[in-house]
Each structure stands twice: as C-alpha cells, then as structure tokens.
Write a protein that binds this DNA or RNA. Structure first.
Lengths: 248, 248
DNA sequence: TGCCAGCAAACTGTTGACAATTTACAGTCG
DNA sequence: CGACTGTAAATTGTCAACAGTTTGCTGGCA
C-alpha cells in the first residue's frame, strides 16, 4: 500500500471535495445558522433529499457529522433535531469559550507578529467607529473577526476547530443578539485591554484580559435575560429575534 | 407537529439506542484505540461491513462521525484513514488540554463538594502507592480517572465532551506512554498541588496548578522524544510501543 | 365530552445494486 | 532495466427499495 502521504502538507488533490455529503453538510449548516431550520425542528430526510436533489444516503452522513459537531440532536428512530438551547446551554458555552479565548490569548502573546497586531488594531478601530455610530451589524461582524483572528493566529488547529464549533453552536442561541445601549463601548474597552496585553507579549495578562472579556459578556447576557424574563414572564426563551442585543 | 419534548430531561426512551451505526461506531473506536487498526491505515468499508455483519451504510455513518471527532481522516474518493499523529499534533493536544484542564479546575474550585474532594484524595493516594511500587499501569489508570473526575465535576457537558475527545485523540499518539523513572512521583506532587488549591476553593490557584501540570507533562514528553531521537535517529515516530513511559 | 384501540400514513434504519473513481498489474517501448 | 500505457480489479460514492418503528387519525365506547 502506498504509504507516502504520511504528514505532508495537504495537497490540492486531498483538499478537493466534490462529494454530495460535503455539499449537503454545508447546506444544512447554513439552513440551521440562518434560522431557516428553526431550533427544535426535525430534519426530514426525504424532504431535504428531494429539495437538494440527492438521495438519503448523503443526507444521513452529513447529519451524523453535524450531530457530532453539536448542531443537531439525534434521537434514535425519531430523527435528528436542530439543537435546542436554554439558559444553561448558554452558560456552558460562555464558560468554555472563556477558557478557549483565554488560552488563545496566552498562546498567541509570546509569538504574535507586528503584522498580526496591526490587523487586530484595525479591527479594534472599526469596532470603535461602529460603537460611536451605534452600528450594531458592523460591530458584531468585526467582533467575531477580532476573536477568530486571535484564535487563528495561535495556529493550533484543534483549538481553532473547537472555538469555531462553539461559536456556531452559540449562534443557535438567538437571544445572543440582545444589547444594552452602551455595551458595545464597554466591550471594546475590553478589546483594548486584550490588545495591549498582546502588544506587551504578556501571556498571563493576555489570558486574564481575554478570559474576563468573555466572562463579562456572560454576565451582561445573564442580566439581560433576567430583565427580559421580568418584563415578559411566562415565555422564557420563546422570543423571536428582536432588536435588542447583548455584546459579548 | 408535536413540539413538546423541548428541554425535558432525557427519558429512557430517548437514551436507548440499538442502532447499528452506534454499535459500529463504538467498535471502530475500540479498534482504533486498541491499536487493532494501526495509525495511518485505511478503513476498508467492505471488509469491515463483512466482519461486523452489516452493510456499508452504518459503517459510513459511523465513520463520518469519527471523522468529525478527529479520530479518522477523510480523503475524498480514497477513504478514511486512522489519523496519523506527529510531534506537532502532540504539542497542539497538550496545549489545548492544558487550557481545558485549567478551566476545569477554575470552574470546579468554587463549587467542589467534600465528597468529591474525598474521591480525588483517594485517587491521589492510589497514585502515590502505585508510584512507590513503580506500578505504571495502575498509576496511568488512576491518573486518567483523576483528571476525568475533575472535568466531570464541573458538569459542563461541552467541556467534558471536548476534554474526552482530546484524551481519545491523544491515545493515538502511542509514544505518549514513555517514561522517565521518577516522573510518576513528580507528576503526583503536581496532583497534590491541584488537590490543595481545590480544597481551598481557590479558582485562580486551581487554574494555575492544573495548567502547569499539563504544561509540565508536555515538557517531559518533548525532552523524552528528543532523547529518543538522539538515541535512534532517522526513524522519528516509528517506534513500537516500548517499555518507557512519560507521565503527564 | 374525553379516552382508548386500531389502522393507515409517514418516517427512520438498513440493505444490496449500480456508477464513478482509484489502485494494481501486465505488457510494451525506449 | 526502467518508465509508460492501457486494462482489470478493488474501492468509494450514490441511489432506490424494503423493513421496522413512530406518528397521526378515525371511530367506537364509557
């Protein structure tokens, strides 16, 4: 047997992937994250197969992978369901994300390049501007990119994979996007602290500022949820995507 | 559509799982971790289906899940291969495991119960005894259980899942089990430090001692690997499971 | 009206067959 | 002798059909 592909960099041949499973997987993922498949709903294999013009085989393979990823729930003989999130799930995700974010900071600090710092600074500036104008959409995007960049720069593929899986899962928690008016500015002040600890190449400080940032985001969201619950009791997590947003 | 199974605790009906996919998955996992399927080898769908007495469908579903888990590598049109680990993979895993272990410590510290501490203390004692007698097998098992318990006690299901996936992946790295003579005693001293910080309910100390413990394990393994490479250069990771062991 | 049994439809679980690609090999040419 | 080409075998990718379970509905009964 040809044994030569041991640990060589991935060649183009290995990367190319035309398989239906893969295409289906990304399509399901998109449908979940866009809300097209509502939280808690069942994935109908026949319907989806018909819609995508494939048979059930690729659908099942793709869905098994997404179950493992955490976006879907498998209940034997019943089907797979878009994972339903509650407050405790949000807390779990925040706690784990805090740990991963802190770890990323501490791993990056000793080896961050000036070019990488420049990229981060630019995003920081963009968020600052967005916060000034109250442009939530821009702030949200830049915020995601800021943290994803820090994680990516560590070059730890497993950390990157785990972090991104967590971010995707967090998107299921629609209420993630509720906001207090000035949370963006607070949040970006924390970004500044992270940036400064990275500029000083201080792993402990980078861990601390990064961890705190997410922990604060958790606190902000929890109080926001409590307020929401008090305002409209009885239907805890049912609220449709609203105009309020919490900044992490 | 029936919508009622929202966030209820998992009932027995939901837990039971007789599906072939699931059985196959666990069997493949076992074969990989036991070394029955060697690192880098291809998983032959037909052969495995025949061996397990099922068709290729369940095999493929199970393998797709294990690809997502990280135990298998999928190369389109070529097949799935038992993931091949190199030194860099080991470093990645150590770094991430350090972060998760530290996080677990810091999450558990504020809420650890006396009963849980007693369990941990007992394992610590078992490891102490095993180290005295040089009983590597016992030490290794108790060590795994010690860390798994700490993570489990956090009750963060995502942290638990990520941690266990990482431990499984680490098992692929066969050389994990090489040892310096007195590493066990050193390692258990670090366990004592972790235990004490938990007993003091000090999250920062628990993070620090836990993180350091794994980071030290990484350092121990790296020097062990370097020594090995100097002793027998030219065949870096090819060594069969030997009698030397590195303690994390 | 409310509850339950029983039947029918819908759906998931599994299989075997076919299509497309990759791999192995034999024969040929330089 | 070694590299190359074409063909056959092996293997993965995909599909359609069948089996078993779950779900939904209808009608009868208290």
């Amino acid at each position: 047997m040809n044994d030569s592909q041991s640990t060589s960099l991935p060649t183009i041949a290995q990367l190319r992937d035309n398989s239906l499973s893969s295409a289906v997987r990304h399509e399901i993922e998109r449908m979940i994250l866009s809300g097209e498949l509502p939280t808690g709903s069942r994935l109908n294999e026949n319907a989806l197969a018909a819609k995508l013009g494939v048979s059930r085989g690729p659908i099942r393979e793709a869905s098994r992978a997404l179950v493992e990823l955490g976006l879907l729930d498998l209940i034997p003989s019943r089907g797979v369901f878009v994972r339903r999130m509650d407050k405790q799930d949000a807390q779990e995700i925040y706690d784990l994300r805090a740990g991963l974010t802190g770890l990323a900071g501490s791993l990056l600090a000793p080896k961050v390049t000036d070019g990488q710092l420049a990229q981060l600074r630019e995003l920081f500036g963009a968020m600052d501007a967005a916060a000034m104008e109250g442009d939530f959409q821009s702030f949200y995007g830049a915020n995601l990119e800021f943290h994803d960049l820090i994680v990516s720069f560590t070059e730890n593929s497993r950390l990157i994979k785990a972090y991104r899986a967590l971010v995707k899962e967090f998107h299921l928690f629609r209420s993630h996007g509720l906001v207090q008016r000035d949370a963006q500015r607070l949040s970006n002040e924390e970004h500044r602290a992270i940036l400064e600890s990275l500029e000083e190449r201080d792993p402990a400080a980078a861990y601390e500022t990064s961890f705190r940032h997410v922990a604060n985001g958790k606190a902000r969201m929890m109080t926001a949820l409590d307020n929401l619950a008090q305002a409209a009791p009885g239907k805890p997590t049912r609220s449709k995507p609203g105009s309020l947003h919490v900044i992490e």
